[in-house]
Design a protein around this nucleic acid. Structure first.
Lengths: 148, 148
DNA sequence: TGCGCTCTTGCGATTCAGTCTCAACTGGCG
DNA sequence: CGCCAGTTGAGACTGAATCGCAAGAGCGCA
């Protein structure tokens, strides 16, 4: 877990200091398949080294969000969570509503739809957010055997 | 503003009591073109009658959300807001990032896209949330004359 | 029309996530 | 090796949202 981590590499490339706290946060983020809350990261970082302050976790998360390494999603429950992701291109996330796992799904051909909305409403669309929720294959299988 | 209000009608139809507090909240909601926060509703209801407790506003908003008369949107800023809407069919909202006005835009032909995502990821999509942000025609005009 | 049973309300206390401050620290360059 | 600015951590602080409970108010029924 202290091995090289793309998040850490990216931090260095952005000209930011590779501090212990950031490594801790980066590791905590990288070690998750699904979404996580700031609180999760806080707990994870704490359990791993000396101590990471609440404020620092939020700051680091904000930093990572700025770099596009992490994205914020709002769960249907209203909670705020984050997901790690590729900084590259525009994409969306599919979140499993049972286990929380999340998968990226690239651009979806929303362009034509946005154009349609623009002409219908007169708005100029600047940004959008699409979040998909459902059951991942595993949870689907599990649900079939033993319904929630 | 004490005239009949579709929200109030709907409350009655749902078998709920038409109390003063609910009327106040319903009026506050109906009197807005755009999104609003719980705090807005609280202030509006207060300025209109005796007094409405914070808790009651939240309870009413939750109630209206359950009835589909109001929907929650998460602004890009991370704030929680609500928009009034038709309970009828599935639809999305376009929110003006400058004045906050919001417009409904009906189903957008997301079906095929969702199907594509399902087959690509193996997930079974149960729900989705699409929020569009941009400038409404008026703000667009205003911005052209006197850039923010 | 009046009564009573519940549902609702309102207030205060409480929780809790997220932010801010500030002195101490440390990473990394020279 | 030493310095300086970028970072950190602890805790205080803020403000939104929730909870509990007793008082109050709809609405149905007689």
């Amino acid at each position: 877990m202290t091995a090289e981590n793309p998040i850490i590499t990216a931090l260095g490339r952005a000209g930011l200091r590779l501090t212990g706290a950031r490594r801790a946060v980066a590791d905590a983020v990288a070690g998750r398949r699904g979404h996580f809350t700031a609180e999760d990261v806080l707990a994870a970082s704490r359990s791993r080294g000396p101590l990471v302050g609440r404020a620092t976790v939020f700051r680091s998360l904000e930093l990572l969000t700025g770099l596009g390494l992490v994205e914020r999603v709002d769960l249907p429950s209203g909670d705020h969570a984050y997901v790690a992701c590729e900084p590259s291109i525009h994409h969306h996330h599919v979140v499993c509503s049972r286990c929380g796992r999340s998968v990226e799904v690239g651009e979806l051909g929303l362009g034509p739809i946005l154009a349609r909305v623009e002409s219908a409403t007169g708005f100029r669309i600047e940004s959008h957010r699409l979040e998909l929720f459902g059951l991942c294959p595993e949870c689907r299988a599990a649900a079939a055997e033993r319904p929630a």
